[in-house]
Every structure is written in C-alpha cells, then in structure tokens.
Amino acid sequence: MSVSLQPLTNELITAVLKAREFAYATDDDGDIRGDWQSCLIYFFRVGQASEIIQVRILTYPDFSVDDVPSLYAFCNAWNHDRLWPKAYVHTDDDGVVRVVGEVSADFEHGVTQEQLDQVMICGIATGVELAEAVAALK
C-alpha cells in the first residue's frame, strides 16, 4: 500500500479542522486559530520551508510579573510529568504574563491528513488540559 504524503499547508490544516467540524478563523496574517473551552489555540506553520506545524495554546488567565516564580515552578512540574504540550511562561511588552503551551511536529518530507489530525488533536486535547490546570492556579 502506498501512502501519499502532502506538503504541510494552511489548506490541509483547515481540512483537518473541517473534517472534525471544529470552528476556526483565519486572521489578517493568515494565521489559523480557534477557541477551545478555556484557551485560544493557533496552528502555525514554521521552519525554513513552513514544514513544521506548531499548535500553540494561549491560556486565558492573565498573571502579573509577581506570579512568574510560581508559574515557572508550575511549568517545570508540568513539563517533567507530561510529554505534551511543552509549557512555558511568556511576558508581553505590557507586563501581562501568561502560560503558553506548544505541540510541534516536523513534516519536512510531507504528511498525510491522518497524521496531521493526530498531531493537531493531541495539541488541542492536551492544550485544554493545560489551560484548565492554569485556570486552577488563579
């Protein structure tokens, strides 16, 4: 049996979202995003040839700079105990702090829709778990 690999494209990403009947939007920059329960999830194509998918989870609770040490401890524990998503602390230019998660996969040689679906659903499901855990910190 021959498997047909396709290049990673925004059209393939949206096809996966449509197949699952997930609501999504595309912003002016062409970035694909959707709201899932307690987080905003972006589906970025990164890398030299845009061959890497990065499912980026932005958790909703905002924190202050004073919370950074405890958020670092939370992220370290999360990353120690779980494979996905990788969690880290991000501070915006305006001083707003939040926890961000990422699941990435390199599809340099192409991807099937089923493979892409697997990575994206992993990012969504584990991203929601991360967002719920972060929300419980407030």
Rank of each mutant, 00 (worst) to 15 (best):
D28M: 13
D28E: 14
E21G: 05
R33F: 15
A25D: 15
S38H: 10
V46S: 07
Q48C: 05
L40M: 10
G30R: 08
Q37S: 12
D31W: 05
G34A: 14
Q37T: 15
F44R: 08
A49V: 10
A49N: 12
Y42M: 09
E51R: 00
Y24W: 11
R33C: 13
I41N: 02
A23S: 11
D29N: 05
D31V: 11
S50W: 06
G30E: 05
S50K: 13
S38I: 13
S38T: 14
L40S: 10
Q48G: 06
V46I: 13
R33T: 12
Q37E: 14
R45Q: 12
E21R: 05
F22H: 08
Y24E: 02
S38K: 11
I41E: 00
F43P: 00
D28S: 12
D27V: 09
G34R: 09
D31P: 02
C39Q: 03
A49F: 14
C39W: 02
F43D: 00
A49W: 06
F43Y: 14
C39K: 01
R45H: 06
T26P: 03
G34K: 05
L40I: 04
T26I: 15
Q48Y: 11
G34Q: 11
R33I: 04
W36K: 10
V46N: 02
R33W: 15
A49H: 06
I41C: 07
D31T: 14
I32S: 05
S50R: 08
F43S: 02
F43H: 04
R33Y: 12
